[in-house]
Design a protein around this nucleic acid. Structure first.
Lengths: 156, 156
DNA sequence: CGGCAGTAGTTGATGTGTCATGTAGATCGT
DNA sequence: ACGATCTACATGACACATCAACTACTGCCG
């Protein structure tokens, strides 16, 4: 890799793009998170976990698998699941085939909560991002995300 | 506002854009934060505060002003400044004109740290986002961010 | 079978963000 | 000048994320 001293500073356009991205992220995330908390009593991560589980067959998944699909660390998932368990949203079950394993299962209450939360959340995402953009911008956003994810994913 | 039941679900393009955004955010932020921690021993918020202060006249700013410019809560700023103070990066001074006030001042060490960190950080931002995109994509990202910030900023 | 490296998950310490609340100094009306 | 109110900031409690151990089971190689 080139030496640090040779790395060019960001030009004005890049500078604005970077700062814009940061601010967009700050605003959109804060609002979506706040809506979710007010409307449904869930944190953003709560919602993601419930959503992932609700799409899984049998409403259950191995902890590690869950973590991997969501790009979370196992530790983070373990901590978070413990808290969600205490609130009755999910349940842990031992894994039959692997004594070390933990299966995380959506409870009836968890299912109810996510189903109630989903439409509000969609509305919030629309209000705070999607409906603000033109179709073209949305397509471009997806394209940008795909580009970045593709290039950045390999090297961790 | 329309009733929740009438809010349309996201169509496939919107869905992909939203998920793409989420993943982009996850990946880019994680990498930039990690680079910053490894290269300079700073967290992302640390960097932002130092950066903001280094651009201020006299390398100092009122706590509230700092918070407002960065879209942080005062509470968050207060907590964060306390931690940065303990590490010798910034210093608090009482405000002459307002007995309640706190001025946050960049220390010599803080200045050294940010100046050392900046080029690495720029390189990281390039690696993990900017240099992955075409000029057109960068322009579009800025445009998208501007659109969102403009529409979303007013109502809080 | 026995030993041992690898894997799945948990836990504790620490740093970070949020909300609700507390406190002291400013400001304004009378 | 004085009390009500507002403002700037601090704080405590809690939720959340990360890293570094640690535990316990698996699976493999002899």
């Amino acid at each position: 890799m080139a030496r640090i001293e040779e790395t060019p500073w960001l030009d004005p356009v890049q500078q604005r793009a970077w700062r814009g991205y940061r601010r967009l992220r700050l605003l959109v995330d804060a609002r979506v998170a706040r809506d979710l908390a007010v409307d449904s009593g869930l944190s953003d991560p709560d919602y993601d976990v419930l959503s992932e589980l609700s799409e899984a067959s049998g409403h259950r998944r191995r902890l590690g698998e869950l973590a991997e699909r969501m790009l979370w660390s196992q530790s983070r998932m373990s901590h978070h699941v413990k808290r969600m368990q205490q609130r009755g949203l999910v349940r842990r079950e031992e894994c039959a085939r692997d004594g070390r394993g933990a299966e995380i299962v959506l409870t009836a209450q968890g299912l109810r909560v996510i189903e109630e939360a989903a439409p509000h959340h969609v509305a919030s995402v629309r209000r705070n991002l999607i409906d603000l953009l033109t179709a073209e911008q949305i397509a471009m956003l997806e394209q940008i995300a795909d580009t970045v994810v593709e290039h950045v994913e390999p090297r961790l």
